[in-house]
């Protein structure tokens, strides 16, 4: 197989709108684990609609696999809708916290410079340690690790990714359709079938 034949894997952001139901996280997670696919990042949060939850899942896979996974997720009874997007189709952020010894930082580095250059802010400053916070893309949060490592980085943690879909107009209008016994075509339509037009012109 040449490099060109290799299916192209990239990061995909899967957005899942669901009912708030115990056990649903497991039901969704096993769709990935069953196929031995690692979840790079998983975040659950409320959505723009009360009682509807939103999962942000990041995996590195080919679009073909992601499409199949998305359909399997959408098939679950308590899942309302699934979207998948590449990184350029979403606005996304991750949050990171860094704990470093205050004395080292104060002595050896200009805290102010660190904060400015890395877009960080100090969350806590205590005599024994300081906690910095930064948000951004992976490269940005990674960059600060490298900067702080020489100053005795004690602890580091990064959050899951949260992502907003650029072209999405949200779920408020859709949910009213879902609540109808006989919803309109758009809601009931499989979004993944919509972009199939190309197939028919073959």
């Amino acid at each position: 197989m040449t490099a060109q034949d290799q299916p192209f894997k990239q990061e995909f952001n899967i957005t899942v709108y669901t009912e708030n139901q115990i056990g649903l996280l497991n039901r969704i997670a096993i769709i990935f684990t069953r196929r031995k696919i690692n979840i790079d990042s998983l975040n659950t949060s409320p959505s723009e609609i009360e009682s509807i939850h939103r999962f942000n899942i990041v995996i590195t896979e080919t679009e073909d696999v992601v499409r199949k996974l998305s359909r399997q997720i959408e098939k679950q009874v308590e899942v309302l809708k699934v979207y998948y997007n590449t990184n350029d189709e979403v606005i996304w952020q991750e949050l990171a916290l860094y704990k470093v010894p205050t004395d080292v930082i104060a002595e050896k580095a200009s805290v102010e410079r660190l904060l400015r250059e890395n877009g960080a802010r100090a969350v806590v400053i205590r005599k024994d340690y300081t906690v910095f916070e930064t948000t951004g893309h992976r490269e940005e949060t990674d960059a600060l690790i490298k900067v702080l490592q020489p100053y005795g980085l004690i602890e580091f943690v990064r959050s899951a990714r949260v992502a907003i879909i650029k072209h999405s107009d949200g779920f408020n209008r859709k949910i009213r359709e879902f609540e109808r016994i006989d919803p309109g075509q758009e809601v009931i339509e499989n979004e993944f079938l919509n972009s199939r037009e190309k197939v028919f012109t073959m």
Binding site: T18, E19, V77, E78, V79, L80, F178, E179, I181, P183, Q185, V187, I188, E189, N190, L193
Partner: peptide, 13 residues
């Protein structure tokens, strides 16, 4: 006969 998040019967296109 209806669950908000569940679409057993797709609309035929």
């Amino acid at each position: 006969s209806h669950i908000r998040s569940y679409r057993p019967k797709p609309i035929v296109r």
